[in-house]
Design a protein around this nucleic acid. Sequence first.
DNA 1: CGGAAGATTGATCAGTTTCAAGCTCCGTGG
DNA 2: CCACGGAGCTTGAAACTGATCAATCTTCCG
Lengths: 219, 219
Amino acid sequence: MKDILKSALLFQGLTEGDLNELHRIVVKKSFPKGEIVFSEGDEGTGFYLLKSGRVKVFKMSPAGKEQVLHIITPGEPFGEVSVFTGKPFPAYAETIEDSEVLYFPRDGFIKMIKKRPSIAMNMLAVLSMRLKEFVSTIEGLALKEVPKRLGAYLIYEAEKRGENSITLDIPKGLLASMIGTIPETLSRSLSKLAKMGYIEVDGPKIRIKDLEGLKEFSS
Amino acid sequence: MKDILKSALLFQGLTEGDLNELHRIVVKKSFPKGEIVFSEGDEGTGFYLLKSGRVKVFKMSPAGKEQVLHIITPGEPFGEVSVFTGKPFPAYAETIEDSEVLYFPRDGFIKMIKKRPSIAMNMLAVLSMRLKEFVSTIEGLALKEVPKRLGAYLIYEAEKRGENSITLDIPKGLLASMIGTIPETLSRSLSKLAKMGYIEVDGPKIRIKDLEGLKEFSS
DNA sequence: CGGAAGATTGATCAGTTTCAAGCTCCGTGG
DNA sequence: CCACGGAGCTTGAAACTGATCAATCTTCCG
């Protein structure tokens, strides 16, 4: 279990001894796929770090439509905002695979920060990156149509993986809710990008045929 | 000038000596109304704290439509994200009134944080609140129509001011871009809320006639 | 092999933007 | 002091984008 602490961005720069200390305040929990980790409005008495599996953090409309804010991958923290605002969780978190999470109770964690301020610096970096992502999300939702948002997402994923071919590791319905739309519209948008010659779609495999063109289109 | 440091959330809990030290690393700048403080893509070598006036932080689409992310009021920091990600500013900042800002160069500020970790804790609180706001913004854009977003905004403002009557201190066009729409649609939405009996509009003065009803409608 | 969940396609509809015109308010200059 | 002009705001009609509803197709496990 200490490997995940050691490899997490949040705890870079800590000594072996610090990690042991952290290890002592942590509670490990396991969730099967499809389980709620916390709900919007729940009191936030600590935060989580994903050890294995995957977790979606999302908002839900009264009508039941979901907007995914973030897909958490191993090593990433989630639910941290409540620790620092003292307010309830502002969104839902649900596993989309069998997952193991580490729970950090607020008090122990705050004490640890006081002792090792570099954790605070790391946390500031994590929150800042998240803010930057949210800014992109807001920009997309407010200023761009679905095909452009989809294009931007594909470019982002392709560059992250360093390939021009993406194999979706999430259902398309989830991708739809990540870019703020519904499966039908996503399907149509994929066809549209394909018809325009930017991509090639084969089930969950998407190949970018014209990266420059797609960038131009999605900007 | 020290009063603004003393009253800023970010620097709560510091001693007089600490504030003096901060004071030494700060550069004061003045901007007339309508001036760009920084642009998207600019290298972020530090961040700003608003001393007086008001600043809008926004994204712009290629077509020129703006999405306001935040209206900064005195005492609030802006442009902090770049300090912790090391990346360029992800948005524009422009004064909407004659303004005075304090500029904190990154290096000096980082040194100060190391010396007084409570600044880091305060900064974490600030960023967390901002994340929470962004989550609401994303939720609104993705999940709600304009009249509901407008309703939610009005409720938020009314509760912040502790009154059921709001006098807009920004042009309606700016409000439109804050809730992710354009002036025409905002105008129609105000009429709609008025016709439904939730509010009463008289120029820049908006009175909430039925708070409960509006809350219900906007949820 | 059968069935359920996910994905696609078509037709329709609602909400929002766009384009265009008119209105109101207010500061400026004659 | 009043008329002018411009910015901001409002209103109407048309065009567009995306959501909804419904049907069909595919996939892939049990």
